[in-house]
């Protein structure tokens, strides 16, 4: 489903999309990291995660091509098993993994997975944002860690089917350009927390099947439908809009419009609700503050009225000093 196209068709185009400069640079960087049979990449993995292991001068780089995502997933699983049997270092370039999400398989493609000589597996994420003096944008690192945690879970499912089960390392390797150069540098990121959170969410998603069940039969998000039909289809999916969505989802401008039209206070941020108790619309809050509605015994209403009085007093005082 192409959410950007869908958003434009709904009349709320987003500012999403990627600059070709960033794309070119990202691809060039990944190619550089993986050049020479992944020599530099394996050096980084060994240096950061497994310094005691044998030098990674020669590594196997199995061919993972196959037909269709299922085929590639099977090929990857086979390559992982063979790598463990063969010993030494193996680099899996763009393997394919499957993870069950709400009952159906989702296919995932990590940048790389490395098999260590001891048989353990490491997820490698290659990003083109810089590590400057050893630190990187925490929001971007957080997103990379959550992404890697999903790969770890998918790998664990593969590992569980092998006997003996190889260890999937919970430290993933994040590879980024160093400072202002295009030279790769890396940092180990412990994704145990993200892994635990994702596992719990996936567990819950299996119960969200019920939500899918409530959708009208034949619901289909295809941007070439007329706008009213599309809106009806999208609105059948419950979504709770919050401004944080704007940086994460192509449909956020559409959801924002709906949220504003419904007069929801959360259109201003989820934190706004913290002190408003059961009041959820802008008009409810303002009328409670004006003393036109609401139970004065409700502390939220009482606090609103005090806030409104103090605000009015301050503004009045300022107007005529």
């Amino acid at each position: 489903m192409d959410k950007t196209a869908l958003a434009s068709a709904l009349g709320s185009p987003s500012a999403f999309g990627q600059s070709q400069f960033a794309l070119t640079r990202g691809n060039a960087f990944e190619a550089k990291v993986k050049a020479d049979g992944g020599a530099e990449l394996l050096r980084l993995v060994r240096g950061h995660l497994d310094p005691g292991a044998e030098a990674a001068e020669r590594a196997a780089v199995p061919d993972l091509s196959a037909i269709g995502p299922e085929g590639r997933t099977a090929r990857t699983a086979l390559a992982l098993r063979e790598a463990g049997e063969a010993g030494g270092w193996t680099l899996l370039d763009h393997p394919m993994l499957a993870l069950e999400v709400a009952g159906s398989p989702a296919f995932l493609e990590p940048d790389a997975v490395v098999v260590h000589p001891d048989g353990s597996w490491t997820v490698v994420e290659i990003k083109s944002f810089p590590m400057l003096d050893g630190s990187a944008d925490p929001a971007k690192v957080g997103a990379a860690a959550r992404q890697a945690a999903v790969y770890v879970l998918a790998l664990e499912a593969v590992a569980a089917r092998l006997d003996p089960s190889p260890r999937v390392r919970h430290d993933v390797l994040l590879v980024c350009p160093k400072d202002f150069s295009n030279l790769p540098t890396a940092s180990a990121v412990d994704v145990r927390k993200q892994r635990a959170v994702t596992a719990r969410q996936l567990d819950r998603l299996t119960r969200i099947e019920e939500i899918a069940g409530t959708l009208p039969a034949g619901t289909c998000f295809a941007p070439d439908l007329p706008a009213e039909q599309l809106t009806a289809a999208v609105e059948a999916v419950p979504a709770t809009y919050a401004p944080d969505c704007l940086s994460a989802c192509e449909l956020a401008f559409h959801c924002r419009q709906r949220s504003r039209a419904a007069d929801e206070v959360t259109a201003l941020g989820r934190a706004v609700r913290a002190e408003l108790g059961g009041l959820t619309t802008v008009e409810d809050v303002l009328s409670a503050a004006r003393g036109e509605s609401g139970d004065p015994a409700d502390p939220a209403v009482a606090a609103l009225r005090r806030a409104a009085a103090l605000r009015a007093e301050a503004l009045q005082g300022a107007a005529c000093p």
Partner: peptide, 20 residues
Amino acid sequence: YPSTEPVQLGTLVKFPDGWE
């Protein structure tokens, strides 16, 4: 409200996670 905390490189992960 799943935890979507930013991650600072080089910091030790403190356990357990509040959400968990």
